[in-house]
Design a protein around this nucleic acid. Structure first.
Lengths: 204, 204
DNA sequence: ATGTTGATTGGCCGACCGGTCAATCATTAG
DNA sequence: CTAATGATTGACCGGTCGGCCAATCAACAT
């Protein structure tokens, strides 16, 4: 039978709590979310949350880890089929961008993870990053990418261009007087991102 | 004489509180920081904080606004002396980058501001952004910048490249197994940023 | 039927939260 | 000297926090 470590066979209630917790944590962050509020959202008692997850911290880690591991898994698969030629890289960038576009909680989860900067090291992250850098290095060796920039910083600048857009677009679009919920903005920004990242803002 | 609205002539204590509040808010964000903790940090009583600032929210806004207004002012001055030619733009990018490098609280303050996404609109932000876009448009008209990318998204992608670096570098450097406190990393990233932003990652 | 096990509840705890208030202290003006 | 004013304190408020616990409930194995 199912022999999960703590003996929780019924997953539906547990998942209900997990979903409620994710919603609130993603919305307000760890500190601003109370266990009782999560209980209310999941329509269970506070005690039940402690029964399943032990503590608020553990629940938060459970929420984060489940999402992040899922995200790493997707990335790993994506990376495996990516060849270091230009078209393939542009497709990979687009898929990465769309992953965030289609999972808005992901960007916020990462935001909270980064800003609250906890010590938990994932290993997954590191492995995945090194894999990406290797791919970029291949691209450089084959002449698809310029070789006078450290591939580590190429990768980071790419992360910046995608991650920060989804973290802050509501703010920037507000500054520009544009509709913060417009799907058009995502599409337009992606096109600009591809041009800037691959070709730069100087005329060729 | 000094006739500040609430009649607080002694600024030193007030500033002590402000500094303590900034330190803790920047470190942990609004929700995770308690008034008593700020009082302890500033070595005053909790009551005194309410005496000077009314409420925790008002203190938070005071902290944020004072810093952000200062930052906007610097930016406005920078922008005024920036010509839209390539060398001048690269200098402006570098100065903008160094502003964040030398004021680490600024990036975190903006992080908290963005992720806790409050409704307060600064006006300053909008005006400044439009000014920057105008400058970029000039650069396009004079042929210094490519004209097939919306200057609004050029500006945003630039914000992403700088802001997110300072928000997340500790995380990324950890992934790469590099020293998160290294000043060298800032310098190296800036060089990479300039190359990528202006010329792109494709060979020329 | 009975005991076992885990799901679920409501009540309770001490700690801390943000905030108020009346009482002091220090300074200075009249 | 005294009145006034603001700075500063400590005690206190109601409320919420995260967490604990004993009791019940439902399902199932014996």
């Amino acid at each position: 039978m199912d022999d999960s470590p703590k003996g929780t066979r019924d997953l539906s209630t547990r998942d209900t709590i997990l979903a409620a917790a994710e919603k609130l944590f993603v919305e307000r962050g760890f500190a601003a979310t109370s266990v009782s509020r999560i209980a209310q959202e999941a329509k269970v008692t506070k005690s039940l949350i402690h029964h399943y997850f032990g503590s608020k911290e553990q629940l938060w880690h459970e929420v984060k880890n489940s999402r992040l591991i899922e995200y790493f898994e997707i990335q790993r698969r994506e990376l495996a089929v990516t060849e270091p030629d230009v078209q393939c890289l542009m497709d990979a960038v687009t898929r990465y961008f769309n992953l965030f576009r289609d999972n808005p909680q992901l960007a916020r989860l990462i935001s909270w993870h980064i800003i609250e900067s906890e010590k938990d090291a994932h290993g997954d992250e590191r492995e995945l990053t090194l894999l990406g850098i290797e791919k970029l290095r291949d691209g450089q060796k084959e002449g698809h990418l310029r070789s006078d920039v450290d591939p580590r910083y190429i990768l980071i600048s790419f992360f910046c261009l995608v991650t920060h857009w989804f973290q802050a677009k509501h703010e920037y679009l507000k500054w520009l007087g544009m509709d913060p919920k417009s799907a058009k903005a995502d599409e337009d920004y992606l096109q600009a991102l591809l041009k800037v990242f691959f070709e730069g803002v100087l005329p060729r």
